[in-house]
Design a protein around this nucleic acid. Structure first.
Lengths: 140, 140
DNA sequence: ACACAGATGCAACTTTGTTGCAAAATAATT
DNA sequence: AATTATTTTGCAACAAAGTTGCATCTGTGT
């Protein structure tokens, strides 16, 4: 784990600092999306709010994480699969938001369907947000 | 137009007030999505910020408008087609966000494609956000 | 015209996000 | 290993976005 984190940072030419390591660990631990607030809480407010913002921004720019749109005005961030090649833009994603536990995850193996747009429209990226019950919450 | 606005309000058992009428008009004029800030600006700050928030909240509850998830942490609102029946939940929407002009619109006539979820997952609602160039911005 | 319910505006506050700058930590160099 | 150069961090101050309680005003039904 430690090593995995360091590799990611090195590969992206980022210096290895406490906050970056800790935040990356969080993403690796919980395979799901995190909001800025989650991160602050789970790091025990050890890092300044500004640092968390900036760290997320850096990760976004480097393509280490991507952001997920939600309808309730909260931005979620999730780790990108590390086998993304150079040219990969994380364009097409299917995200699943569980209505019960609130967990959000990135369904990497579900393909984004083709969508027929009206004449004159050209698309560059498609995001799909699926709400429902996740595997774990569907047992009851 | 005046009449259309009043009909919508009456149908939803809402009293006809200045802010509600004006905000509904805005939505009808521009067939596209509006952010809270847009509304404040376009009404010339005539109404209190709180009133705008509350008005949008009421419209949301009544199902007159719906909210659109965006990746940049801004909530957009768009009018629901008024021919929505009672049982209609505005569940499945395709939204188009133009990368150039920023306009966001609700593609009502594009059907949301079926998505195959992994085992154990059940969905209740699917939203699709398409980024790209809209009809008007595609001319150049 | 009147009374009641509901909507508005104000003030104060919380939460969320941003910016500039000095201090501290990391990386590079010798 | 010590020193310098480069990044990153935390602080403070601020800006923007959103919420709440309450007194006042407005729209609606009688």
């Amino acid at each position: 784990m430690q090593e995995a984190v360091q590799n990611i940072l090195k590969k992206n030419q980022l210096s290895i600092t406490g906050s970056r390591v800790r935040i990356l660990e969080l993403f690796l631990e919980q395979q799901g999306a995190l909001a800025h607030g989650d991160i602050e809480r789970r790091t025990g407010e050890k890092f300044d709010r500004v640092t968390v913002y900036r760290t997320l921004q850096v990760f976004l720019n480097k393509g280490i994480i991507h952001s997920i749109p939600t309808s309730d005005n909260s931005v979620l961030y999730a780790l990108c699969k590390d086998d993304c090649g150079e040219g990969h833009h994380h364009d097409n994603h299917v995200h699943f938001v569980c209505d019960k536990c609130g967990n959000t995850l990135c369904l990497e193996d579900v393909t984004v369907p083709a969508i027929r747009l009206p004449k004159g429209y050209k698309f560059s990226q498609i995001q799909v947000i699926v709400n429902g019950r996740c595997k774990d919450c569907n047992r009851d």
